[in-house]
Nucleic acid binder design. Structure first.
Lengths: 204, 204
DNA sequence: AATATCACGTGGTCAGACCACTGTCTTAAT
DNA sequence: ATTAAGACAGTGGTCTGACCACGTGATATT
């Protein structure tokens, strides 16, 4: 009965390759723009068939983590440009409920960012920009989110923002925007949050 | 000189296939657990080689959007289980700053959930559960997040929660938790938020 | 009826073959 | 010597055909 030891590759080859690539990138300190070995070379070095190597590379490419140029090679992309958004949007965010959730989430994160902005005392950084006239509410929001100095939160907000914009159009009263802006300029957190709640119909 | 019309397939085949699959899923109203055609059948129906079909499927599998079982077939997964984050996490969430941002984001989303819970008047749903003694803060938070009836927000929180737990351990005073819980039971939003701020050191 | 067997379909993997494109190196024309 | 044209090698893109490993259901056996 000595185990037949059926291959039973617990992990599929292409997954194994993805991990090897990750290690390779980490160990060799490869970064944005650098080139990784050709498919044929990876195939030889890792000891797997070229088609398996390609499956791994295609998956990473779909994620936007690498870029391939025919005739040239495969290159690492700036990880901050990953395509999470489009992918999630296309495949996951579909139903009506999800849209509602997305809009709701977006607004709540905006509010969180406002609070965080004040908590970190960074609201003054926006003053000069807010004083000019022709700024849309969205532009203001972008500055607020960026002002929080939290790239992750910014990323999440941008994702939601892009997705929401595909089916929802903000329609906000100019006066309310003005109140909101004034509150920020005056560094009045409470007033800013109140204005935002009204703006977004979050008051009870 | 009549254009040689080099193939120049603007879009690579595997991308084309990913899109076709998306349409197929949308049009046929396929959902979690449903089976999609076999690789060989897709190859025939779409008119592309099996290897290209596989590249597309492997990419979607890495994303956690589909699941393949040898000998059985390929199935659609619950989109709420996608692995995007884990993947991106492995590749891009590494620096110290990112960790700090993640913890910060997590806490802010928690606060948002508390507000949303009250806004929707769903805080009473937790009362019975909160009255029992041996519940950890994390368990309470889970209930709150779930109570918001926003799957997207829940998903984001869970992701952040998992990631944060890999390097951070909450250490919260029991008395503060008690105050927080009492405020919720009494449906006192303001007190709950104040308690949370203290709990998380968000007060100024 | 219960059980063992086997054929078929499915995913997993590989090897080899072309094609299309890019960059370089060689060679021929100036 | 300079330059332009062509040959060549390397790389990704795609397809085909071949096995293997595994699950299922029909079939044969008991």
């Amino acid at each position: 009965m000595s185990e037949p030891v059926t291959n039973q590759a617990a992990t599929k080859v292409y997954i194994e390759i993805v991990e090897r690539l990750r290690d390779m990138i980490a160990n060799d300190g490869l970064g944005s723009g650098d080139r990784i070995p050709s498919e044929r070379e990876l195939s030889e070095r890792l000891g797997y068939g070229r088609s398996s190597v390609r499956e791994a590379l295609r998956a990473l490419e779909l994620l936007g983590l690498i870029e391939t140029r025919r005739g040239e090679g495969t290159f690492i992309k700036d990880f901050h440009e990953h395509r999470l958004v489009e992918l999630l949007g296309t495949f996951i965010l579909q139903g009506q409920k999800v849209r509602k959730d997305a809009l709701e989430s977006k607004i709540l994160i905006e509010k969180s960012c406002i609070e965080l902005l004040f908590l970190k005392g960074r609201e003054h950084l926006l003053s000069h920009m807010l004083e000019s006239e022709n700024v849309s509410f969205n532009e203001i929001m972008v500055k607020i989110v960026e002002g929080t100095d939290n790239r992750l939160l910014k990323k999440i907000w941008k994702i939601l923002s892009e997705y929401v914009s595909s089916f929802h159009q903000d329609d906000i009263d100019q006066n309310q925007i003005h109140s909101f802006v004034q509150a920020i300029i005056q560094s009045d957190q409470e007033a800013a949050l109140t204005a935002f709640d009204q703006l977004r119909n979050l008051s009870k």
